[in-house]
């Protein structure tokens, strides 16, 4: 280091005369202008960049094959049943909740379609009942969706829940989906839900 120091060229400051005040102001103004330009460009770029795409199920293409429950890399699957309440008929005989030709219209296990008991049936007023999905119990098997779609008005449907989904580059359910119902959707609009005011 001693040799390098000895052979370093002298800086202008090391001469006797420095830059004038006008030069200093001009260079400062130029620098500030470049900084402002760069910031504006970065801001605009960030606002106009395309959002990333993520996987979602188109409920109108879904055929309720059951593969969402078995092909997800997560166990239980990141696919859950969601309920569009504004579409629901609040039926006493809900074909998403009850087995076909149920023994009785009560919550006995012999009558329930859901294998994990994930649907809670609550009396509202005669003759209406509310059906709510307990997400922690739902495994995405689509049995309720099938019942609701076949004999009801299809208010229950499947969605990929993005608080659980790992967003694999190649979604293994999408590969297995026989109906091509898995789509890439913008990450800032991650759900394809039925109804207008439905809550997942």
């Amino acid at each position: 280091m001693a040799d390098a120091h000895q052979h370093a060229p002298e800086s202008p400051a090391s001469g006797g005369a420095g830059p004038s005040r006008r030069d200093f102001l001009r260079q400062s103004l130029r620098g500030a202008a470049f900084l402002a330009l760069g910031g504006a460009a970065g801001f605009l770029a960030s606002r106009t960049a395309r959002a990333g795409n993520i996987w979602q199920i188109d409920p109108y293409l879904c055929v309720q094959c059951g593969k969402c429950a078995t092909h997800c890399v997560l166990n239980p699957s990141a696919v859950k049943c969601v309920h569009a309440y504004e579409m629901c008929g609040y039926c006493e005989l809900c074909t998403a909740f009850f087995e076909p030709d149920p023994n009785g219209l009560n919550t006995g296990a012999e009558n329930q379609l859901c294998p994990t008991g994930a649907i809670v049936r609550t009396f509202v007023e005669d003759p209406y009942f509310e059906y709510r999905i307990t997400e922690d119990l739902c495994i995405g098997c689509a049995k309720c969706v099938k019942g609701c779609t076949a004999f009801g008005n299809g208010s229950m449907h499947l969605q990929v829940r993005h608080d659980r989904c790992l967003n694999c580059n190649e979604c293994s359910i999408a590969v297995a989906c026989p109906a091509g119902a898995f789509k890439r959707v913008p990450a800032n609009r991650p759900y394809l839900m039925k109804g207008k005011r439905s809550e997942p």
Partner: peptide
């Protein structure tokens, strides 16, 4: 039978 189903379930 119902009781049996409920228990098994």
């Amino acid at each position: 039978l119902k009781t049996q189903i409920r228990q098994l379930d």
